[in-house]
Design a protein around this nucleic acid. Structure first.
Lengths: 90, 90
DNA sequence: TAGATATTTAGATAAATGTCTAACTATCTA
DNA sequence: TAGATAGTTAGACATTTATCTAAATATCTA
């Protein structure tokens, strides 16, 4: 597993907005789509990219598919950034 | 200034590698280019994108242009990630 | 000031990306 | 089981992106 997919996934504003929505609570694909001025297949495409990057999880319950944050990769990304903000001493 | 440029800049592996190189110390454009199997104009293009995202600074000294990390935006990005890794209580 | 070195800018091109519509799959319910 | 609802997949298309070569700009030095 590489962070490369995560960095690419995070480069799109719509996808970051989806993640922000999921911070509050899990949401169905339709609920997520309703927040955007965009067709459902486009949102579905973004969800797929976020899922491939392991930034979100999905779970079908009946007719709905619920999406939720997977914070594991967020922690890994934090670690990556941390190495840049910490000044090393010689 | 928006983080959007920074997120896009960080989506490319070459650019992240450039940042990693600059973690150690400032480098000239030529020194940076020598680390990649890529023509100089391509590296120059990546440097421009990193600079527009305020992730790096540049400074000419004679014939050379020195590039160095600007950690301000890294801190802002860390803050962004932090809101995802911190579980809020109701 | 001419030539060498360092770097960027300009313009072309192929590949990747985001969006759309149409069609398909899955589930529920009357 | 037929129709409705939720969501994805497929395929087309326009835009963006990463790379290249050639040319331009900036600085140094003999």
């Amino acid at each position: 597993m590489s962070l490369n997919e995560a960095f690419k996934a995070l480069s799109d504003p719509t996808r970051r907005q989806i993640l922000t929505l999921l911070k509050e609570d899990e949401l169905t694909a339709g609920e997520i789509a309703s927040h955007f001025d965009m067709q459902k297949p486009s949102v579905s495409h973004h969800l797929k990219i976020l899922k491939n990057a392991s930034l979100i999880d999905d779970e079908r319950r009946g007719q709905h598919i619920y999406y939720s944050l997977n914070t594991t990769v967020f922690h890994e990304l934090m670690s990556w950034y941390f190495t840049f903000t910490t000044k090393e001493e010689k």
